[in-house]
Design a protein around this nucleic acid. Structure first.
Lengths: 226, 226
DNA sequence: CGGCATCCGGGAAGATACTG
DNA sequence: CAGTATCTTCCCGGATGCCG
């Protein structure tokens, strides 16, 4: 009888309180974030969640599944490996992740030099895109982070992205999520990144620059003097 | 040296991760929620946060202040009592609370019969209002929960609310937040509530009914069969 | 009385080792 | 690779007490 579901509740009918009971445990929202672009395997989650231990990840997955947020599945043969995905309702948690990220980006203490996962940076594009700046630009953008490939579509209604063949993009970024973040958000010059081999671009550099210019971080909050 | 901020961080540049470092501690987001409609006193926070202990509340307030989210103030004489409010940036956290609440309202496990605070129910109105249903209705709505009075304004652009004299409303609800929730979200008949004394209405009952009809909870998520 | 220390017990998270 | 078992660490919550 390890559990008995004694979770300390909040005894509060407020939706926020219930949301925190479902997603407020340490690492829970990270797991949801990593699944936001499609199902993944246990080991992949662990690799992109540096710091989480196997038992905590297993427990979070179990709890999230019990609450109908995560769905345990199995790839068809011959793979036959277990995977974890989000339920339809689980996918609807994306605005939570977005608002949390958008708000925290204004924090004076935010350190953007820390490592970042591929899913994180791609989700941040969905959050931070400046729709008014898109104009009539339509573009397929591929991303290759090691073994993981994603394909995004830029259109008048924003930026969408999912697992897919990166080669299908009009432009393709190959590198690490951190370096890509440095290019898009940090304004690192593409030429230097390409020369050092940190970030490889396939396609028109001018298009890549136009793409990067669509994403801007909100201004930091400056506490007024006391 | 109690220990120099050894908080276990996430080492993740994702904005969401930083947001959780700022607001992810137990009770932290509750404190922010309770301050969302204006500054309050230590004891008031404690009273509306059943279950929190004084030392934890003090610690959260200290941390939130150190991070620029909460601002410690003092009412002018002759009151001269200390109060806690939100910084401008702190107020910007409302979408986080809203999205969390909106999402959790679809949870199959959500129990709306639990107690609820005055701030919670009023914030939920801001979240859950159906803008398309407002039409040309313009209305000032007062709320009196014991000693606490709030005044809300309904207009084409939604519902806004703040601390204020409830009497100034075209209609005024007097009662507990829970009973008001039962009327607005649970469809409890106003006549019975008034008769039992649980909820007192000043003003036109038809207006109150029109007001209540503007707020609808999202449909529950029904997990598909395995 | 409001605000914040201190001590303690319980339980969740972290690290590591181990098994199928 | 996908988890489970076990031990340790530390946060949370309650009680108590000091101090303004």
């Amino acid at each position: 009888m390890k559990n008995s579901a004694k979770k300390r509740g909040f005894d509060d009918a407020c939706g926020m309180a219930h949301g925190l009971e479902l997603l407020g445990d340490r690492w829970a929202l990270f797991v949801v974030r990593e699944l936001m672009l499609g199902p993944r395997r246990f080991g992949d989650l662990r690799a992109d969640l540096p710091g989480i231990s196997a038992n905590v990840l297993a427990q979070r997955l179990t709890e999230l599944e019990a609450n109908g947020i995560v769905v345990r599945g199995k790839l068809p043969p011959p793979a036959s490996v277990p995977v974890y995905g989000l339920s339809e309702w689980g996918y609807e948690a994306e605005p939570i992740v977005q608002e949390l990220g958008r708000w925290a980006a204004r924090s004076p203490r935010h350190d953007p030099t820390l490592p970042i996962s591929g899913v994180s940076i791609l989700l941040s594009f969905r959050t931070m895109i400046d729709r008014k700046a898109i104009g009539d630009l339509v573009l397929a953008v591929g991303f290759r982070f090691g073994e993981d490939e994603y394909l995004g579509h830029l259109g008048a209604d924003g930026f969408s992205v999912g697992r897919g063949a990166a080669d299908a993009g009009d432009i393709v970024f190959v590198g690490t999520p951190s370096v890509l973040a440095g290019f898009v958000y940090g304004g690192a010059p593409l030429a230097e990144l390409a020369e050092s081999g940190a970030l490889h671009l396939m396609g028109d550099p001018a298009l890549a620059a136009r793409f990067a210019a669509l994403f801007v971080l909100p201004p930091k909050f400056v506490p007024p003097p006391r």
